[in-house]
Design a protein around this nucleic acid. Sequence first.
DNA 1: CTGAAAGCGCTAACAC
DNA 2: GTGTTAGCGCTTTCAG
Lengths: 357, 357
Amino acid sequence: MQQTGEKLLAKPKSQAIQARRIRPTIHDVAKAAGVSIATVSRALNSPDSVRKELRERVVAAADSMDYMADSVGKALRRQRTQIISTMLPRLADPLFSAVASAIQETLEENGYLGFVQTSGFDNSNLFDRAKRLIEHGTEGLIIFGRIDDQRLLDYCRAHQLPLLSAYSYFEKSEVPTIGFDNYLATRQLVEMLHTLGHSRIAMISGSDKGNDRQQSRIRAFRDINAELGQEPVIEFTHMDFDMADGGAALRRIMENHPETTALICNRCVIAFSVMVEARRLGITVPEHLSLTGFDDIDYAALFDPSLTTVAVPSEKIGRAAAKAMIARLETGAPLGSRRFETEVILRRSVARPRTTA
Amino acid sequence: MQQTGEKLLAKPKSQAIQARRIRPTIHDVAKAAGVSIATVSRALNSPDSVRKELRERVVAAADSMDYMADSVGKALRRQRTQIISTMLPRLADPLFSAVASAIQETLEENGYLGFVQTSGFDNSNLFDRAKRLIEHGTEGLIIFGRIDDQRLLDYCRAHQLPLLSAYSYFEKSEVPTIGFDNYLATRQLVEMLHTLGHSRIAMISGSDKGNDRQQSRIRAFRDINAELGQEPVIEFTHMDFDMADGGAALRRIMENHPETTALICNRCVIAFSVMVEARRLGITVPEHLSLTGFDDIDYAALFDPSLTTVAVPSEKIGRAAAKAMIARLETGAPLGSRRFETEVILRRSVARPRTTA
DNA sequence: CTGAAAGCGCTAACAC
DNA sequence: GTGTTAGCGCTTTCAG
């Protein structure tokens, strides 16, 4: 390596231990091409600023040894990592993985890379998991759902780390939100059922602890019931962890509220497991009981009967979130909120209420 | 900052431009605690080597400013990033996201972090996508399925980048493989159908280009047919991209080979879309046609009729792959291959063949 | 158009 | 037990 005489003194000792350099560095390329490391850097990053002949020599040398500039060194020097990380409840779930996929794709298209971190469904304790992402150079953080962790909010504000909440939209929010209005969407769903003639509607929700989606959907349902002077029928599952738990909730509802004609499940997976149990119990869907899901994951249309759901533009939301974060990082333009529309997709799992009973 | 007099000359110029340091560095902590940066590093990384009083001062200072050691600087110095990356066909798919999830969890538990990169189903062109991961400091690479990209193999060998193929197991392989034997599993599945009395079996496969899973399953099916002196009936879908494409394959089979009594779908999603089409065509499953999937994703049990599949221990494979890679990185012990067992899960979508026809 | 050198944040010799 | 300092790989002034 071309070092000054002084530095050569210290060199051999430490370096000689390692057998052979695992990955070529800019120095190796410079040596091979007979130029300085500065020229290598320029030839590779801003080719126009280097004389053709030299440039070609550098490129040839770099190619011959499969040189890839080390992003770690680059990041340290440039003080930019181009890493945008995402936190979501789980990865092994069609909904979350669809969002994650859209985000990752968008990042990739724009030369970014991202860590994906799972956090469970409770958004009130995100900081410790976010920490690892931040330590590793995360320049922007996208969180699935509302951020209920004050520590994380404080940290990001104090250290100017761009933070974005994706999937749920909130009119007023300390942090920009890109997503849809869960409250509104649920109201639309219930109104659709009302229009069909259902007046005895029950809800099965996932745990609402630290989960703004469930909270908003429950609130919408309670509000509607209150407006009608009805007592809301809500059962909770722990479907988040156990695929089969929706069945138990269905049994509780059918026992305590046999007059129920329509059942709103706050996640598609809940609806699927309810369907299985309904089949087992001989409850026909939709003849005896109408059933709805939420999020319209691909499988909703494949089940028999096909499942009525609220279609959420998850991919669009994911892309929008990633794009917004990239724009923020590139131009410094402040992040803005954005509301997406949802649509009730009426499928075979919903029909007019049974007349008997 | 405590620098020697010389260096201070160059300092103020460049630093003064930036308003305020976004994220505190080890120098900030050192200054606040009135110690050297070395002591900060020691107090945080090997607390025992620092006098209690000083240690507490350092920790207090660090906490007060939310100090997090920058992994970029750390990685550059230590020449370790603790990043293990994964490449898989897609993310928005229950199978792949289950594997990704298991890998990510295992990494996290062990203080590692990982990038997840999607590559599509064709494993013959992985290098360019892997490049970005390698550039960003990936120390070990886990690839879903057999690696058919010679460039990637060459690169990893030349630069000693640990490489692991997960999900598919191969007896002989340049690269260690952790997974199951697709050929064997398919043979088991077909034999089960034979035992039940099926002799006219067809297969619907996904594209087999660069996809060892499909290739092995097709080969097993061809071999069995050859042993029986039968002409194999195989249709291809492009389900990889279009959820509804399984239906067209079913129609082709029912038209050209109406004698078929059992249908092997090489992925669960194919089977689901076939089920939908069968319903539409009035073909009853399993009475008229037995149906099998592969991979046993959670949804297989929820469909009506529930789907017979080959259960693959995807999570175990993911965890094993991640653990093996970590062990390789920590101890230097060479990566080994490992074969997992699969099991045919007989569910309602399979019955004895219809006697008429 | 090219090279020398500084320095990003950190750890680990080395010196005391 | 603590401080000083070199240097990981890179980009980018600054000279020439």
